[in-house]
Design a protein around this nucleic acid. Structure first.
Lengths: 197, 197
DNA sequence: CCTTCAGGTTAACGACCGCTAACCTCCCTG
DNA sequence: CAGGGAGGTTAGCGGTCGTTAACCTGAAGG
């Protein structure tokens, strides 16, 4: 995978700032003029890059869901010979990386879904469900006593735990990224373990 | 404590419906006309009961924060002779009850705080912080190896876990309220346990 | 029986917001 | 060196939203 070193395109700048603003004040709470100002152009200039405000949100949410699912599938495929427990650790690690590195997106992901057009919302929900079911399968392999509904509830709850990073204080105030990642990982495993007896 | 049997006042009806709507579509996504319609009166009629839309949100958020803190203090006082572990279980139980019974409020609680007037926001934040610090104290008593910042992170994460109930499917789809409460409780204890080694 | 007032109603105002129209200005390319 | 498209600009339209104003009504109280 070629790591990007080139400058971000204007579209990417806009998406990044829009994500931050949407997460801070909600989709309806942010005006197009503000998004424009955040990237140094003025309101209507955005329409050279996006069909509308809705399109920005849609692209953000679809992108997040795809990225999460793609990463999980890759981890599942890569760790083919490993134990189920190792795969679960890999999934947790991937989700934590995402939660710590893209906090605004994590916030949007479960907050602004209802603002999407029907077709986009369906797509996002489908991707999210696939992601959840992938976790459920691995979790049930590690803890075979769990019924499927219980495992699904447990997975959602652990997502709540991992996605709590936006509430852990401003970016710099954490005990350090690595320390936080380890703590979250241990707590997630502990939570699953307690769910599975 | 006298259990209420009398009919809810109009103010209470309004607050309840406003909470539901705000949680569903966000503060800015709901119009006063909709809130009015939800209680059978029309938009401007609300102004006989509240100074404005902001005032409804403020009353909701302050009310939630006060209720959570009051409940926690009561539990701490009641279980005076008990072990720290029992107190922690009581706190977890109280938070779960709240999360399961007032799902819209839980959603609002950490989502719409920034829409408040400065003074209200300060008040809510102060109440929230007191609630967190109360938990941190108990958690550190149960797990003395935890540093204060780590314990605080752990508490926030467990809140994320417990507050995930809105994502667990529509009200009836859960495996049953009691079962869910027990599962959440075990996972919360498991997460704290893993954090404290 | 008249008054008062709580709790509604509809009409309308002013602000804001998403979006379009019309226009401008580089820079690349044949 | 034309010219054309990419990527901006400002002005302004249409709709929505929170709020206020003015008015109505039914029930309680002296």
């Amino acid at each position: 995978m070629a790591t990007r070193t080139d400058a971000p395109t204007r579209r990417e700048q806009i998406l990044k700032e829009a994500a931050r603003l949407f997460a801070e004040r909600g989709f309806h709470g942010v005006g197009v003029d503000e998004i424009g100002a955040a990237v140094g152009i003025s309101g209507p200039g955005l329409y050279r890059h996006f069909a509308g405000k809705d399109a920005m949100l849609a692209e953000l949410l679809v992108g997040i869901s795809e990225q999460l699912l793609r990463g999980a599938k890759r981890r599942l495929a890569e760790a083919d010979g490993s134990s189920a427990a190792d795969v679960l650790d890999s999934l947790i690690e991937g989700h934590i990386d995402f939660a710590l590195d893209d906090r605004p997106l994590i916030t949007l992901h479960d907050r602004e879904l209802d603002r999407l057009r029907d077709s986009d919302r369906k797509l996002v929900r489908q991707l999210q469900r696939q992601y959840v079911e992938l976790w459920v399968g691995v979790v049930r392999e590690v803890y075979p006593t769990l019924t499927e509904p219980t495992a699904r509830s447990a997975v959602h709850s652990v997502f709540g735990l991992l996605n709590s990073t936006p509430h852990l204080g401003r970016p710099g105030a954490l005990p350090g990224r690595g320390v936080t990642a380890v703590l979250l990982h241990r707590m997630a495993r502990g939570a699953f373990g307690a769910a599975g007896e």
